[in-house]
Design a binder for these strands. Sequence first.
DNA 1: ACCTGAACACCGTTCAAGT
DNA 2: ACCTGAACACCGTTCAAGT
Lengths: 221, 221
Amino acid sequence: MAQSARQPNAKAERLSEDQIIDAALAIIRESGVESLSMRSLSRQLGVSPMAAYYYVRDKQGLLDLVAKRALSAVQIPDKSVGPWYVRLQLLVDQVEAGLRHNQGIAEVLLGRIMFSQRSVMNAIMEVLEEAGFEGPNVVKAYALIHTYLFGRYRVAIEHHDLAPGQAEEGEGAEDHDDTVSRMAPFTMNLVGRDYYHFGIETLIYGLRSQLRRQDLTDVPD
Amino acid sequence: MAQSARQPNAKAERLSEDQIIDAALAIIRESGVESLSMRSLSRQLGVSPMAAYYYVRDKQGLLDLVAKRALSAVQIPDKSVGPWYVRLQLLVDQVEAGLRHNQGIAEVLLGRIMFSQRSVMNAIMEVLEEAGFEGPNVVKAYALIHTYLFGRYRVAIEHHDLAPGQAEEGEGAEDHDDTVSRMAPFTMNLVGRDYYHFGIETLIYGLRSQLRRQDLTDVPD
DNA sequence: ACCTGAACACCGTTCAAGT
DNA sequence: ACCTGAACACCGTTCAAGT
């Protein structure tokens, strides 16, 4: 702290990867992923638009760093803690906590299949293997979980919905009907904790059914 | 056909909503949603950049039209065709067919919760109600299906993956290791039909488990 | 009614240059 | 080594204007 001549609360003289990630996360939390740009990042950091390019190859590289940070707290549960579905639950709960804490980050991770935190992906797949999934089914089961975990944040961003009665027809014109929002409580539900639990629970039940089916049909004919 | 003086294979003199949708779908199918812009659309149509704005309010309006068209062929199955899960299967299979035929369109629909083809959403929710889901659970079950159906297309766009052994560490530098693609068959699987069927099957099994649980716990205490 | 053109405030990225 | 500045090829959208 008293080591060098750095100003304490102003910005540091040199950038660092951590500073860049912090700035990016600040933007994402405040205004959403869609307003994170290389240029808004540079503004946040108080540097020139090109400064961050010394640390990341391109914008995708930035997103990878950010995604990695968001899931960095996830701990791989020990085999002793319980059966596979309990450990699976523990893993996805931690991922969900990371997503919830960094609102808007799920968007980034959806298409990247855990490029950054591959260890989390591997842990989930190992649990699935121990559960009894084999070969391509391990990947399929993982991808199903992945899609739900990261995809659900993209669903229903919109609030301004029309009344459900009136369907399409009519040749255009501005239907700016403000009869709005019998749908609003609907879209609300989707980011809530009970929806998350319902979904994960359903997925795990479904996977267990798949295993039972697999056992029955796995006898060589 | 012989009615007016329109040129047959050149572009028509006046735009129409249908022409605009066709042009947008052509771009999406050829180069993906990310390269559909109001400007690329205008180039495709051979008109000025602002021409389409007479027909749509903004880009989101364009995407709504496109999404609606992609699902326009979906037919609501009659109640006589079978139990709820069979009709659910029929519905989602048709949606999937629409998505498959218009590669890249799922992206658009994921965040819009069927803004355009609400009838499909309603049909699915009705089936779920007949299955035995009640109140908020109908929406939760629908959202789960929705997320899988439209979200899975966003997963694993990337092909250039690193070897799975080597984890992170090291202070940067270009790891342009071309040890690539033990992951490549993985990303391939995710757009295949068998992955789709595995996912939907698992979801339906899971939903059936939820119904059984619901029946057991629905007794007033 | 239907479309154009210029303009504004943005993007990501390359490339040469500064310290 | 670390950052800047100018430039290029893009965006979506507004607004006034043309036919």
